[in-house]
Simulated scan of single mutants.
Amino acid sequence: MVPTTSSPLRVLVVDDERRLTELLKLELDVEGYDVEVASDGATGLIRAKTSPTPDLIILDWNLPDFSGIDICQRIRAGGLTTPILMLTGHDEITDRVTALDAGVDDYLVKPFSLDELMARLRAMHRRADSFSGPSSSNPVEEELRVGDLVMNTRTRDVSRGERSIQLSVKEYDLLNFLLRGAGRVLERQEIMHGVWGENFYGDDNLLDVYIRYLRQKVEEPEAPTLIHTVRGVGFILRDTSP
């Protein structure tokens, strides 16, 4: 069942498949959620931003007016951090990367079991509910640096030397995690948990994809290598210059 709260969790379902939305609404009602349904992207976007905003969003990739990717990007551009679970028939690594970069928290490939969908909703809610900002007694560093690679966590600016580096949301999260663990070997599972969350169900090949993207943007031919592979274990970020 849904975690106990003072009031039912609000779930917005954005999908144009009537039979699926009716089934989801029935199941979510039984589980104790307060459910609202939108059959197109424009309506879903309005309801996602309307107070009270939903606690969780289930968003289909293919909608009659906009793609779920477009809707997710617009939701995130508006500053909303509501956890989003994307339903999709796309199961390629590149599709998963596209969804995660758009701001999706998790995705579920059709066809799926209702038990798995409920488990993922609970996991997303636990992760969002457990998040808390840094306390004054344990402030997060505003600047992270390894060699000439610098990240300003307040402005989210990243640079190497005089060169500014543009990163996607997940690329930034991954580099942030590597920088905070700089100088020690980070195991693959540790990185996956730190960047995608302990309850993320995705393929860990995503980590290799994002490491490759980071290297393409961060590394320079004439400069010391910063991101190193520790075969069979994970990765380490360190400055190897003399």
Rank of each mutant, 00 (worst) to 15 (best):
D106F: 09
D106A: 10
G197E: 06
F131Y: 12
E222R: 14
R184W: 05
A77Q: 15
D115L: 09
G68L: 05
G234K: 09
D101I: 03
S6Q: 14
D55L: 07
L144R: 06
Q189P: 04
Y210S: 01
D70C: 03
I46Y: 11
L226Y: 12
V11E: 03
S113H: 14
P83H: 13
G133L: 00
L23S: 13
H125V: 00
D55K: 04
D55P: 11
V109F: 08
T155H: 12
L175I: 13
S241A: 14
T225W: 08
C72G: 07
H90C: 11
Y107D: 00
D204S: 11
M86P: 06
A102S: 03
S7L: 05
Y201K: 13
T88A: 08
E141F: 07
R188P: 02
E17W: 06
G41C: 02
E141S: 15
V109T: 12
N62Q: 15
A123R: 05
I46W: 14
V209L: 08
L214N: 08
R160T: 03
R76Q: 06
R126S: 07
R188H: 03
R19H: 04
L100Q: 02
T4C: 14
V150E: 13
L26V: 00
E92C: 05
F66R: 14
I46T: 11
I69T: 04
V209Q: 08
Y201R: 15
R96T: 11
R154I: 05
G79A: 04
I58W: 09
V146G: 04
D105L: 04
N152G: 02
E141A: 15
D60H: 01
T240N: 09
R163Q: 12
L178K: 05
S164R: 12
S51G: 00
R160F: 11
G32T: 06
E187I: 06
L179V: 09
V218R: 08
D40Q: 12
A38C: 13
A182K: 10
G183Y: 10
R180W: 02
G41A: 03
I84P: 15
D15G: 04
H193R: 13
V185H: 09
R154Q: 12
S136W: 06
L100M: 11
L59F: 08
P52H: 07
L167N: 05
S130K: 04
T5S: 14
D65F: 04
R126A: 09
R154V: 13
P134L: 03
S67K: 02
S159V: 00
G147R: 05
T225R: 15
R96L: 10
